[in-house]
Amino acid sequence: MNNVPLDILDEKRRIALAIRSAVGKVKGVSLVQRPMVGASYPYNLDVPGVWVHGPDAKGRYGVIVSIIVSGMRISEAANKLRSEIWGELDRRGYAGHVTSIDIRVEDLIMAV
């Protein structure tokens, strides 16, 4: 196994924590833990359900967020969550470090 520099791990952790904070602000959406093949981050139990992968050649990261949506239209929930995440990353100064936010809806809990 290759050694990953500590600053990369720390940056991934900070991005994941920012995402967790953003998810907490969207009603009807919660994180769900899913193991991903080759994922280095989710096995750090700080933020289950968030996989920060990378960095690429430009030092930027990609993010996959696994969520449960309850009682809400998926497209509406995903758009709201994505904009909340970008806002939170921007506030914490990480927006420029992230290339994309992929949202995976793992479960639909229908309230109706």
């Binding site: 497209s75 992929d102 949202i103 809806v105 793992e106």
Partner: peptide, 18 residues
């Protein structure tokens, strides 16, 4: 997963069995 959105900001996918 079924892809429901894909643009520069990222993808949105939904679990197919669900």
């Amino acid at each position: 997963f079924v892809l429901v959105r894909d643009d520069s900001q990222g993808m949105t996918q939904i679990s197919r069995p669900d």
